Amino acid sequence: MTMPRTTGSPGNRVAREVFADLPPRYDRLSWLLSFGQDRRWRRAVVARIAGGQPRRVLDVATGPAGVALAVARRTGATVVGVDLNEPMLQRGRRTVEAAGRTGEVVLVAGRAEQLPFDDECFDAVCFSYLLRYVDAPAEALVEMTRCLRPGGTMASLEFFVPPAAGWRAAWRLYVSAVLPVAGWMAGGSAWWRVGRFLSRSIPAHYRQYPLDWHVRAWEQAGLRDVGWRLMSRGGGLVMWGTKEAAP
């Protein structure tokens, strides 16, 4: 195992700063933003990972370890969760301990762009709500694929912008007006700031990196059979692919 070579990028610093005050109630924020759908989205990712019957799984941007725990419960695999936000990791460690899974889920600090692992050492890789917080999403995909064994599965969950005009208009109203206010009422000024940030960052990301870009980036990283599914009228995006075998 090698250690990260640098401390972070501007995108990484945004992730640290925006979510610094939220770990104890992070799951509630995901529930608010997704109208309570995030658990169903996560189950879709876990199902993709579980289909390959992995024994060792990497969960990048693990946050408070919700997906890592779900994968461990579903598969019995050893799961290594990585996040650059230390307060999130501390919360995750307490959650893992409370769930009695300290022998199956291990949490370490690290960056998606410079993962502290050897090549091809995981049977599956998953990540959630990550690509808006790295400066070079394609490079992060390449780095995560590096850690995946040939034939292994990668799956991800991200927020998305609904493609249908009516749902998109309702979504924009919600994230720009309702979400910041709801965040402030639920958790004060820190949540208001996060609500405002998300209302700008999600559409900005897909203006720069539309869905077809994501598919091509996965393929160029070395993944085949890349598929995707829009969740909850397009509020969420689940993607998956299989690492190509070496020639």
Rank of each mutant, 00 (worst) to 15 (best):
S30L: 14
S201E: 04
R28E: 14
G66N: 11
L33A: 15
C121E: 12
V142N: 10
R48F: 11
V45M: 14
A70T: 05
R43K: 15
S34V: 07
W31D: 14
A77N: 06
A169H: 12
L115T: 05
R111E: 12
D83H: 06
P180H: 03
R73S: 10
R216M: 06
R93G: 12
G11S: 03
A182Q: 09
A65M: 09
R28C: 09
G36E: 08
M185P: 03
S30M: 14
P64L: 12
R172C: 07
G66D: 14
E139V: 10
R93M: 14
A221S: 13
V67G: 06
V125A: 01
R13C: 01
V142D: 11
D212E: 15
V45G: 11
G241H: 04
F159N: 03
A182K: 08
A186C: 02
G36H: 13
M185L: 15
P87F: 13
R172P: 00
R56P: 04
W191V: 00
Y26K: 02
V181E: 11
R40T: 15
R55N: 14
A165Q: 13
L58W: 06
D225W: 11
S189G: 00
G151P: 00
Y209A: 05
F159H: 08
Q90E: 15
F122N: 07
F122L: 10
L211F: 06
A136E: 13
G92K: 02
V108D: 01
W171S: 08
Y133H: 12
P116Y: 02
W184S: 00
E120N: 10
L198W: 01
W41I: 01
E143C: 05
V238I: 11
T2P: 15
F197V: 05
T102N: 06
L32Q: 03
P180W: 01
M3R: 15
E120F: 03
A182G: 09
A50W: 10
G51F: 11
W228R: 13
W192H: 04
A61L: 09
E139P: 05
G92P: 05
E143M: 07
A136D: 13
W240H: 10
A165N: 07
V215H: 09
P23A: 09
P162H: 08
A50P: 13
F197C: 05
W228A: 06
R146V: 02
G222L: 06
V181D: 06
G151V: 00
S199A: 15
D38G: 07
W228E: 07
V45P: 11
T75G: 10
D119N: 05
C147W: 01
P24F: 05
F122A: 09
R224N: 13
V238R: 05
M144H: 00
N12L: 15
A182R: 10
V108R: 14
R16M: 07
F117V: 03
M239W: 00
G235C: 14
Y206M: 05
P203I: 02
R224G: 14
A186K: 01
R25W: 07
V161A: 03
A204T: 05
V226I: 08
W213H: 07
R216S: 09
